[in-house]
């Protein structure tokens, strides 16, 4: 709690820098316009103009907030101009990918912990893969999956039979989810291997003196003691999944989702739209990581561990 005042001070300082930057960076355009119109601007006129431009170089915080308000609350959430609509498209791909990536990651980690051959052959590659920019394959994966026709989650016909119309988020969901899964996969593998190996030799010996079966050792010792590592890697994984989904949206069609908003914004110089999408992505990331953090605290407390 004693950190509240320092944090607020830092945030206030960042805001002040932001406003100063907005005035400074947008003043060139304001002065150009004034010169063309043949008028002299006073200092206060410059300030008011720079903070209210339609396509500012750097939008002021209140402009971004206004834009966010207009595109979330004041728009119908099914509208293609609503940030909630785009946010949901990104979120659905992130979550689907994250669930698959985490599930497969945990399975592989169990395999690695129990099979020495898998450990020796796969683990060096899993660690090495953390140092390479996997995201670079996103555009290719999107195009290849488009070519072979694997783009929609449930085909159009199945979805229409089930829901009447195909929900918007299902269109083009699969490539994004695959990249999101791929990005969350390796952090989970590495974290879970560490976690499943967390019990020390004494504890494993104790299980042996109880003549516990392999399954019992797994469920009652290894899995519970891996939980802190599990949640830590989930936090890394979900953040990576979100980045994966956003970057995949840069090359996906139709151009939608938060990544799509950023891309169209940068095509048409709509800086407010880019900033709104950026803040939307930040809020989404913070909410997802916060949610996992809350799950972590709750689970660990019920298990009697220190969170």
């Amino acid at each position: 709690m004693r950190s509240i005042i320092p944090i607020l001070t830092v945030v206030a300082a960042l805001m002040a820098i932001w406003y100063a930057g907005a005035i400074w960076m947008n003043s060139k355009w304001a002065l150009d316009q004034a010169e063309r119109a043949g008028v002299e601007l006073s200092l206060s006129e410059i300030v008011t103009d720079t903070l209210a431009q339609e396509r500012p170089v750097l939008p002021a915080p209140h402009q971004v907030v206004t834009e966010l308000w207009q595109t979330t609350v004041e728009k119908n959430i099914t509208s293609k101009r609503s940030l909630v609509f785009h946010g949901w498209i990104t979120l659905s791909a992130t979550l689907l990918g994250f669930i698959f990536g985490t599930g497969l990651g945990v399975l592989l980690a169990v395999g690695i912990v129990y099979s020495r051959a898998m450990d020796m052959s796969v683990m060096p590659w899993a660690i090495a893969s953390q140092t390479i920019p996997i995201l670079a394959i996103a555009p290719m994966l999107v195009v290849v999956m488009n070519t072979i026709g694997a783009t929609d989650f449930l085909g159009k016909d199945t979805a229409e039979a089930l829901f009447g119309t195909q929900p918007a988020f299902m269109k083009g969901l699969l490539p994004k989810a695959v990249i999101a899964a791929y990005l969350s996969f390796f952090p989970v593998v590495v974290g879970m291997v560490k976690g499943l190996r967390a019990p020390d030799a004494m504890q494993l010996d104790l299980m042996r003196t109880y003549s516990a079966s392999g399954a019992a050792t797994f469920w009652k010792l290894r899995l519970p003691s891996s939980m802190p590592y599990f949640f830590t890697s989930l936090k890394i994984g979900i953040a990576a999944s979100l980045v994966g989904a956003i970057v995949a949206e840069l090359s996906a069609s139709p151009i939608r989702g938060l990544g799509g908003r950023m891309l169209t914004g940068s095509y048409y110089g709509q800086t407010l739209q880019i900033w709104a999408a950026l803040i939307g992505a930040a809020v989404l990331a913070a909410a997802l990581v916060g949610l996992i953090g809350a799950l972590q605290r709750g689970t660990l407390r019920r298990m009697g561990m220190k969170p």
Binding site: A239, V243, L278, A281, A285
Partner: peptide, 10 residues
């Protein structure tokens, strides 16, 4: 923890 990559277009 945020997707800072989103600042790229800006």
């Amino acid at each position: 923890a945020l997707p800072i990559i989103g600042t790229a277009p800006i």
